[in-house]
Design a protein around this nucleic acid. Sequence first.
DNA 1: TTCCTCCCCTGACATTTGTCATGTGCGGTG
DNA 2: CACCGCACATGACAAATGTCAGGGGAGGAA
Lengths: 203, 203
Amino acid sequence: MSRVRVLLADDEHLIRGALAALLGLEDDLEVVAEAASGPEALAMARAHRPDVAVLDLEMPGADGVMVATQIRAELPSCRTMIVTSHGRPGHLKRALTAGVRGFVPKTVSALRLAEIIRSVHAGNRYVDPELAADAISAGDSPLTVREAEVLGFAADGAPVAEIAERAALSQGTVRNYLSSAAAKLGAENRHTAVRLARERGWV
Amino acid sequence: MSRVRVLLADDEHLIRGALAALLGLEDDLEVVAEAASGPEALAMARAHRPDVAVLDLEMPGADGVMVATQIRAELPSCRTMIVTSHGRPGHLKRALTAGVRGFVPKTVSALRLAEIIRSVHAGNRYVDPELAADAISAGDSPLTVREAEVLGFAADGAPVAEIAERAALSQGTVRNYLSSAAAKLGAENRHTAVRLARERGWV
DNA sequence: TTCCTCCCCTGACATTTGTCATGTGCGGTG
DNA sequence: CACCGCACATGACAAATGTCAGGGGAGGAA
């Protein structure tokens, strides 16, 4: 019986290497490629055509979900999974929409991860119960398209004038969107609103 | 010859477990305790009196530097090291001031980490060259004590009135500190100032 | 000592930001 | 069709924020 061919992508060498070693100990798993960045992960996937791609959410170049989307487009037979340190509800939704079949926090053990890889390879889906609960309780973004867009522009602390220019809106309108977004998020001002929206993965 | 007794603290089980396994393969290293939070790390240190404590910088409860400080106070013979995902210059300085003897990003390999653990145990210090360079180029914080304090209170987006109350200052004074801090950091407003100060580890 | 510099602190003034009332147009419902 | 609700958009006004000029005190240099 052939082993499950796994691609491992994580920018932290310490984790990637250790993980590769541990997963390699499993009889039925085989780590065929490793990558330290989004683009590299994609290139490795093309070159090695793995059965399952295990992708870190935070990577330089392109994040895990972007890579997963691309992989699905180019290698439909390859299942994708996301592992992440600090799971934001919005990311989970984004990942599932992108066709990711496993979403796991880094707080699980390597043994458990191996089981999940097998399960995903067998065609099942797996979402960490804790993260799923968070996502459900956080619910969908209450923000409208424009609100989210403007909040995004405000994310790095830019003044309203600059946001207005970038969004091609009047300053009054921008202030309005920021205000309503803050109200929906229960924030006192736009800066805490940005923080909250980030935490929930809505920007 | 007795082996180096290592304490491993990291809230990500995936990493901690994998790392424990890999370090355990080294003949001269022995992982005698693991912890998933700051307080737990401290308790484990007290109970097992390791030779070297390898601490993650970001942990729930108390961060790696706090734990290191405490360990040094209670177990002077125990060397401490910090590993971190995203090294901020200020943290490095804070760590060194706290008597930490190794500061390593998670981008190194497990093998390299093992070498560094040995080196630290032998009495040497080790600081990742990249992080050291960052720290040097970032330099010392130009902020005065009050400026840093007020900027810290402003970090979560609180309005000036609240900051003034928490810092027991007039609102005018608070605005003044925020303003001068922003100027020193080259920021347009206090929110970008907060971001920059965070990046450099000055808050 | 005297001077100088820098940190700490403040209120008054100008600018930016947040709130409100209002208007337009689209998509679904009775 | 007429109506309702909602997203999108705006300017005027009120509130929060940033800037400025300046005073008091500690510490170091002349």
